[in-house]
């Protein structure tokens, strides 16, 4: 059974009837995900691309048995949509929306404390268990079922790394986009915990970048829990000039080269293999597996 999602996942889409919601819901259904409900306030009782639409999350959850939600709601209302899903005790909430106000995420983090919800994102490409379940917007053509768990702060680099892994003969158990925003739901440490406990996962790739403290948290987790499976990390952003925000709101650092270096050092110190370059992640994972076998 893969981490986070499986064949039993029943998905609800918040903001399904918008353009992006419609397009991606359709792609998720085509991939085989059981999409059981949509939520758009004011459109309850209708059907959209064959899926029943409800006015609220709690109502949709009790009517359909949905156990996961994906949020496509635009930034101005995305925070409220997340709070509604947490209130309805949705076990898993994946947020694709970009440019959510940071204080709205602080409000969401407060609501998550003591809740039953595990939140992924915002600004996440979602979760993919290849050939089993897709909750997200990612490309799937190169993804194959296999033993590698991928946790990433970048959607585009996840596609790149998945492509490299598949080319190296290493399929993926689950890929998780934790999102590019500074304040978000689950982080690398929790992903590592899931992957270390997941029997389908034999190795882990972390895709990190400058800014924030995710990589240091991951290192701290490994120091406490032990390096139970081979972990390869790619850390990008060494070449970014000081104080520049390069697309990701989370990728802002005061002294970028040092920051990338300190992240790399923290991970190396606990036995994580650092990929020498962004085009060598697949190779690095193959080598880590070969070393383990030897």
């Amino acid at each position: 059974m893969p981490a986070l999602v499986d064949k039993e996942t029943r998905l609800l889409c918040q903001g399904m009837t918008g353009w992006a919601g419609t397009y991606h819901t359709d792609r998720m259904i085509q991939y085989g995900t059981a999409v059981v409900a949509g939520v758009t306030p004011g459109k309850g009782g209708t059907t959209h691309i064959g899926v029943p639409v409800f006015n609220g999350v709690a109502e949709a959850k009790s009517a359909t048995g949905a156990n996961a939600s994906i949020v496509f709601v635009p930034p101005a209302n995305a925070g409220r949509a997340m709070l509604e899903a947490i209130e309805a005790e949705m076990p898993l909430v994946v947020v694709v929306t970009e440019r959510v106000p940071v204080l709205d995420m602080v409000r969401v983090r407060e609501a998550l404390v003591g809740s039953r919800t595990r939140l992924i994102g915002p600004n996440s490409q979602g979760i993919l268990a290849p050939e089993i379940c897709k909750i997200g917007v990612m490309a799937t053509d190169r993804a194959r079922r296999g033993p590698i768990g991928v946790a990433s702060r970048s959607a585009s680099l996840t596609s790149e790394v998945v492509s490299q892994l598949t080319a190296a003969g290493l399929g993926q158990s689950t890929t998780v986009g934790i999102g590019g925003d500074p304040v978000h739901g689950i982080g690398f440490a929790e992903c590592l915990d899931l992957f270390f406990k997941d029997p389908d996962t034999e190795g882990v790739v972390l895709i990190g970048e400058i800014g924030g403290a995710e990589e240091q948290e991951a290192a701290r987790y490994i120091r406490e829990a032990g390096l139970k499976k081979p972990v390869v990390a790619l850390i990008v952003g060494r070449a970014v000039p000081a104080q520049c925000r390069m697309g990701h709101a989370g990728a802002l650092t005061a002294r970028p080269s040092d920051d990338a270096d300190s992240k790399i050092k923290a991970l190396q110190d606990v036995g994580v293999v650092i990929a020498a370059s962004a085009h060598l992640v697949g190779t690095a994972m193959s080598e880590a597996f070969a070393r383990r076998a030897a």
Binding site: S152, S156, L157, A239
Partner: peptide, 10 residues
């Protein structure tokens, strides 16, 4: 993609 961009700069 921002991450792909950071990788490209590197």
């Amino acid at each position: 993609g921002a991450g792909l961009g950071l990788a490209t700069l590197d």
